[in-house]
Simulated assay, not measured.
Amino acid sequence: MSTKEQILEEVLVEEQVGLNNEIIVYNDDVNTFDHVINTLVRVCNHTSEQAEQCSLIIHYKGKCTVKTGGLDELKPQCTGLLDAGLSAEIV
């Protein structure tokens, strides 16, 4: 393996490790579909279709990963979801 290939491989591994964080939203008996959809669009920059699909998964499966990325990016988004009354956590 050449030095160039080795460095490229190390960079790719670092990028993958940095994106292992996820925001998971859990189902509850309080929030409506519309509220969850609107919150995902506003806070996580989802399209309407993405937010609707996530809300259905949350409802039927009990939880859904709504966003992945670096911890610095996810913290304010998770806080926004919590402030809107959704049950969410970063894992």
Rank of each mutant, 00 (worst) to 15 (best):
D34S: 13
L8F: 14
I7Q: 11
T39F: 00
D83C: 01
K61P: 00
H59V: 03
L81N: 01
L74Y: 07
K75T: 12
L86E: 00
V30G: 00
E73Y: 06
I57G: 01
L81G: 00
T47K: 06
I58D: 02
L56G: 10
I24H: 07
G70L: 10
Q50H: 05
K61W: 06
M1K: 10
G69A: 11
L40D: 01
V30A: 02
A84T: 04
V43F: 03
G85S: 05
K67Y: 11
L81F: 00
L19H: 08
N31G: 07
V41N: 03
F33S: 12
H46K: 08
I37G: 03
C78S: 08
G70N: 13
A51K: 02
A88G: 04
L71W: 04
N27P: 01
K4T: 14
L40H: 03
I37V: 15
R42C: 01
H46C: 06
V66L: 08
G85P: 07
L8I: 15
G69R: 09
I23N: 01
R42N: 09
T39N: 01
H59M: 10
V11D: 07
G18P: 01
L86M: 09
T32L: 08
Q6R: 13
C44R: 05
K67A: 13
E9R: 15
V43H: 03
T3V: 14
S87K: 15
V25H: 01
G85R: 05
H46S: 03
E49N: 09
K75D: 02
S48V: 09
G70Y: 09
Q16M: 14
C78V: 07
Y26P: 01
N21A: 09
N20V: 10
C44E: 06
I58Y: 05
T79N: 12
N45M: 06
D28V: 05
K61G: 02
V25E: 00
V43R: 02
D72C: 02
E9G: 12
L71G: 00
G69T: 11
T32P: 05
E10N: 13
D72H: 08
V43S: 02
I90F: 10
K67T: 02
K61D: 15
Q77R: 10
S87G: 00
Q77N: 05
A88L: 06
R42S: 12
S48R: 09
V41P: 01
A84P: 04
L40M: 10
V25K: 01
Q77K: 14
Y60N: 12
C44L: 11
I58N: 03
D72P: 00
V91P: 13
T39A: 00
L12N: 15
K61M: 12
E22W: 07
V13K: 14
I58K: 05
L82E: 11
H35A: 09
V17I: 15
H59E: 09
D72L: 10
L12T: 07
E89I: 04
E14S: 13
L81A: 01
T68C: 10
V13H: 08
D83Y: 00
N38S: 10
